[in-house]
Design a protein around this nucleic acid. Structure first.
Lengths: 359, 359
DNA sequence: TTGTATGCGTTATCAG
DNA sequence: CTGATAACGCATACAA
């Protein structure tokens, strides 16, 4: 009890009396100079004589001075913090992006705040607002579908931002990514050209996910151009897991031959690998009985047998370019971040082939 | 008069500096109350009458006021920012941890700064110092091996911190994780009990990675207890990739039978999957010719054939608990973060079996 | 090259 | 319940 109250008291006093850490003023006293000179020694070293600079650094070191960012930010109107909002860190397409961004930002003295929306736009908005309150100088957002309120705040506060993992010519915002619709149209056309006429789609949920919506559009348009379409039972939407892919494969394999697809387009490699496993488990073969395509090109996808036909997306490059665009704005080299289309490449491998001849 | 000219001056400055950001003072004017009351309306609503509160919120909304965190932090000595440093976001064991942490912190109104050390302690220190300058209130660090200077700074500034992904009874610091040495000893003993006597180890680089060092100790101690040891050529260290695993498998399969291992202990599941592929490619079978073990239990590991014997580690739980420990410190419910051992579980599957009888 | 003085936006203290 | 006012730690015109 006594101990406890003592601790509380101490904590309270720390709060009342300030951080308890050394401040710039103490460094100044110790070095026998003014606070302005200390500040200059760090922020504009060339304007301070080597001699005093050394005195100052020594003094700072002796008291273990760490600049207080709040005071700094308040006086300079710079927080040195950037922010990124992604749906989830559990998907490597986003964690790779963030990793690349963090590296670029760090090289420019910027710290990175991160938050996840869990594919929930309202949560994303909330997280973004929290970051804006923290004074982020720039912001990267995954995807294009965000509450108008978010864009309004960013515009009004003149916080530069880019949208990542998507690219749409003529979009209102700066975007760094690729055209999801075109990419899936390309993949679909590959299968059409091989001779496939009956398709299934295994896709992650499209709610509040503009990338997935674009992908479905791409598939449907490509099919329509060939006079084809998906019937309802061949469109399977669920969690992007191996298990869901396996389930779907099982259901598709159980269809009567006339309505059974010969090609299965998957929303990502995880689903596609699951589908391949499900097909094997059902006693069928890839690509003889089913052609399968993925998206992302995970390390595993090229090593597994049969190697997966998929689309390579360089998520690290997306993250890097997005961060670089923001940095150029912050350093005044550019007025607004520029959009940038990142190339994706179709990797044709063993999981796709011409369909077997109908008996 | 004075007031008026003051406002004009302020407006002029805002125009000059292009910062169209409203401040608390303007909200106060608009609502016809003092700045203190506006502040209270947000931070201690119960101490402000409902009526004035509503006036204030309306005024704030009309000018789109966003609180300035720098001013806030300076006055309250609270940054509402936590930090985490991990080796890399490219490995899901860390990205999952970070994702879980971020969720917990967000629930408590804390934003999360993230940085990667790339397994370089100096870079980690540098990143950590940057975070400390930004005023992080708490910090999570992956692993145990960090420069003494880092610990000194954290201690001196009284910043609560926890180390994650490792646990060592009697450690100097709060740790949330598991005993890497014990875990690998357990895995090794499983193989010894199956009857294996010749082992190979395929492991990620151990430089500046205390977890890997502990794992190797665990393996060697378990072997020693059984009167066994590794000869040099059976210890293979390299990048934790499928390719390196495949290479190692090829080299091991090429050894003359008397010195060829019957069991291959891998540092993680990625390496183990690579080893399995390499064995298949070399024309051998798992587990008939080689037993293989992994570590982490990726989603894939239980679905692949043969299913991989591995150790399940709940990285999300590690992240969650670590963050919770830090939060309890920040809310004053605890003085120091507590260590917490997270259970790992051995998943015995198809990739391990008794070695074939020697002819 | 260095010092002085002031402001940055908010919270907290104390009086009312 | 509310208001006036002093911190909070630093950067930066302006002087010297």
């Amino acid at each position: 009890m006594t101990e406890n109250s003592g601790q509380q008291e101490q904590a309270a006093r720390r709060l009342r009396e300030g951080s308890g850490r050394a401040k710039l003023e103490e460094v100044a006293h110790l070095a026998g100079v003014s606070t302005a000179t200390v500040s200059r020694a760090y922020n504009m070293p060339e304007k301070v004589s080597l001699q005093t600079r050394e005195k100052i650094f020594a003094a700072a070191k002796s008291v273990g001075w760490v600049p207080n960012a709040a005071g700094r930010a308040l006086a300079s109107n710079r927080s040195h913090i950037a922010g990124v909002i992604i749906p989830t860190l559990d998907n490597e397409i986003f964690s790779h992006q963030v990793g690349a961004m963090q590296r670029v930002f760090a090289e420019h003295g910027l710290n990175l705040l991160i938050a996840c929306s869990n594919y929930n736009p309202d949560l994303g908005l909330q997280q973004a607002m929290a970051m804006i309150e923290r004074g982020v100088e720039a912001m990267a957002l995954a995807g294009e579908t965000h509450p108008p309120a978010l864009y309004e705040h960013l515009e009004r506060l003149a916080i530069p931002y880019v949208l990542t993992y998507a690219y749409r010519p003529g979009a209102d915002h700066a975007m760094v990514g690729f055209d999801n619709e075109a990419a899936f149209a390309r993949m679909t056309n590959h299968l059409i050209e091989l001779g496939h006429r009956r398709f299934a789609v295994v896709m992650q949920p499209k709610d509040d996910n503009d990338r997935v919506e674009a992908r479905l559009r791409g598939i449907e348009k490509a099919l329509a151009s060939a006079g084809l379409s998906l019937d309802g039972q061949s469109m399977m939407i669920g969690k992007a897991s191996l298990d869901f892919g396996m389930d779907c494969a099982g259901r598709l394999a159980a269809l009567p031959v006339p309505s059974r697809p010969t090609a299965i387009i998957c929303g990502n490699d995880t689903l596609a690998l699951g589908v391949q496993m499900g097909i094997a488990r059902a006693g069928y073969q890839v690509p003889e009985d089913f052609s399968v395509t993925g998206f992302d090109d995970l390390e595993l996808s090229s090593r597994i047998r049969p190697a997966l036909t998929t689309m390579f997306v360089d998520n690290r490059q997306i993250g890097r370019i997005a961060a670089e665009q923001l940095v150029t704005c912050l350093t005044g080299k550019s007025d607004r971040p520029q959009s940038h289309e990142v190339a994706v490449s179709l990797r044709l491998r063993e999981s796709t082939a011409a369909p077997a001849q109908e008996p």
